[in-house]
């Protein structure tokens, strides 16, 4: 028996919005410690990994490990039927070929139930080694989204260059070129606007903007995004999954990490 309840169903909607264009089908691995998902995009250039901690749920029960393979586009459609303030429960019985989604409205007298068919998917899990990265940039998620969108007007790829003075995002295309430079800054009043750069050695790497723009669909989950880079390894773009409660308290319940293979010169 698996049962997981989130008090703010909108979090699950945001997670699905963040991944369902990159991957259409994937398996959730459910264990006593939480739910996780790992999947490559169809062209095998990027990888998305979602982790939800069991203790981030208001109720979490997983009697034995389960793999719930499903069509994420369909899951997204069903989650659209939940109100943003609904409590959402996911239930799966051992050996069943479907899961149940239960939406409880805040008024406490309206309950909706949906079932979604499970699928047997060929799992291709990649092992991601512990890596210490040369460069880590923590910046406002909305700023990163804006930079990726703007530079995609200029070209298909962005070169991220880190030096002592800051981080440069630049693109070149038929019409010309463009760049955005950020230097470290911190504000006590608005920590969500901070740019934090930690660098061991200068570095420059190029990535396809098509994928980065897909990753930024996770922007509504968290005010800050973390980029981790090292030479000759994929870029990691991480968003914390933050649940905002009624009292405006913020609770970190997991994360989404996107991994993107670099473009390399001949």
């Amino acid at each position: 028996m698996f049962e997981a309840k989130l008090d703010r169903g909108i979090v699950l909607k945001k997670i699905l919005d963040a991944i369902n264009q990159l991957v259409n089908e994937a398996s959730w691995e459910c264990t006593s410690s939480g739910m996780s998902l790992q999947a490559m995009d169809t062209s095998h250039v990027s990888l998305v990994a979602v982790n939800l901690n069991g203790d981030g749920f208001s109720k979490f029960r997983c009697d034995r490990n389960m793999v719930l393979g499903m069509n994420l586009v369909n899951l997204s459609k069903i989650l659209k039927c939940a109100g943003n303030d609904d409590k959402v429960t996911i239930k799966a019985a051992d050996g069943d070929d479907k899961i149940k989604l239960i939406f409880e409205a805040p008024n406490e007298y309206e309950v909706s139930q949906y079932e979604i068919k499970l699928m047997n998917l060929d799992a291709e899990y990649l092992g991601i080694p512990e890596t210490s990265y040369n460069v880590t940039v923590k910046m406002p998620a909305a700023k990163f989204q804006r930079i990726c969108r703007d530079l995609n007007q200029i070209g298909d790829a962005v070169t991220i260059s880190c030096t002592k003075s800051g981080v440069d995002f630049s693109a070149t295309g038929d019409l010309g070129n463009g760049s955005v430079s950020l230097s470290q800054n911190s504000s006590f009043d608005k920590p969500e606007d901070n740019v934090t750069i930690s660098m061991q050695e200068p570095l420059s790497q190029t990535f396809a903007l098509k994928y980065l723009n897909q990753f930024t669909k996770a922007t509504p989950l968290c005010s800050q995004v973390t980029l981790s880079l090292s030479p000759d390894v994929p870029l990691v773009v991480e968003y914390k999954i933050i649940e905002e409660n009624e009292e405006d308290s913020k609770n970190e319940i997991g994360h989404i990490r996107y991994y993107l293979a670099p473009k390399i010169d001949d």
Partner: peptide, 14 residues
Amino acid sequence: SANQTKIEHYYGLR
């Protein structure tokens, strides 16, 4: 122009 690499090139199957 630069060539796009694949993610499996960096991370092996688990």
